[in-house]
């Protein structure tokens, strides 16, 4: 779900940077409200790197395989650092692997970063009621993990199909939307299951990591 350079009109790329600037400003404002904002920097950096590396793990789903995105888990574990972490991950992906682009960095950050912020808020509220019971806690993880991908898919598709420079045939557009959504359902389910199990794993092994930041 990375839009490369050259596909979107310049106004959309600039708006993407504008919205990303706003979301980053908001995240940094919240981070700076903490007693020692720099204390969390190594944690956020290692978290960003760990998520970047975790996305290299692919899960075979015949006939193809999917790679993990984990934006929901990122929102849960990094809190207000999640949006800057997504932005930095995308910057590295654009620079190191040419996935995405630099003119579209802002748009891509919104596509993957907004669900991470929403995941953080959903988790903060849901945790209060569901933390004690493993099954309910797992369901919360599943919902956050799968919805994060679902929102990203909707944002990606809406942006690409709305701002694609060509006039696409209406029927082709309908078929493409259906195919696109159906092809991402397995990823949504896997991300949901994965997020649920990782949350339960961390609750057993390192519960202090799950304190909302």
């Amino acid at each position: 779900m990375h839009i490369p350079d050259g596909i979107l009109p310049v106004a959309v790329c600039a708006s993407g940077y504008g919205l990303t600037g706003l979301a980053t400003w908001y995240s940094l404002k919240k981070i700076k409200e903490k007693e020692d904002p720099r204390k969390e920097i190594p944690k956020a950096s290692l978290g960003t790197a760990a998520f970047f590396v975790a996305s290299w793990i692919s899960i075979p789903i015949p006939p193809a395989s999917v790679h993990l995105v984990l934006t929901g888990l990122l929102g849960i574990l990094l809190g207000y650092y999640a949006f800057p972490a997504v932005l930095i991950s995308l910057f590295f992906q654009a620079v190191m692997f040419q996935h995405g682009g630099l003119t579209t960095l802002g748009v891509n950050a919104i596509i993957l970063g907004l669900p991470a912020i929403l995941a953080h808020y959903t988790y903060t509220i849901g945790k209060k009621f569901l933390y004690k019971n493993n099954l309910k806690y797992g369901i919360l993880g599943f919902i956050i993990g799968s919805l994060s991908i679902g929102i990203s898919v909707i944002l990606f598709y809406t942006i690409v199909i709305t701002f694609i420079p060509a006039n696409i045939d209406v029927n082709a557009e309908k078929i493409a939307s259906l195919a696109f959504v159906i092809s991402h359902i397995p990823l949504m389910i896997i991300e949901g299951i994965f997020t649920a199990f990782v949350l339960i794993y961390l609750k057993k092994v390192k519960p202090e990591m799950l304190e909302a930041k």
Binding site: T24, L28, I31, K32, P37, R38, I41, P42, A44, S45, L46, T48, A49, A50, F52, V53, Y81, P84, A85, L87, I88, S89, F91, F92
Partner: peptide
């Protein structure tokens, strides 16, 4: 600086 620090550390830890 918070962002550039995270970029440098992330680059180191990836």
């Amino acid at each position: 600086a918070i962002l550039t620090d995270i970029i440098i550390f992330t680059y180191r830890y990836i």
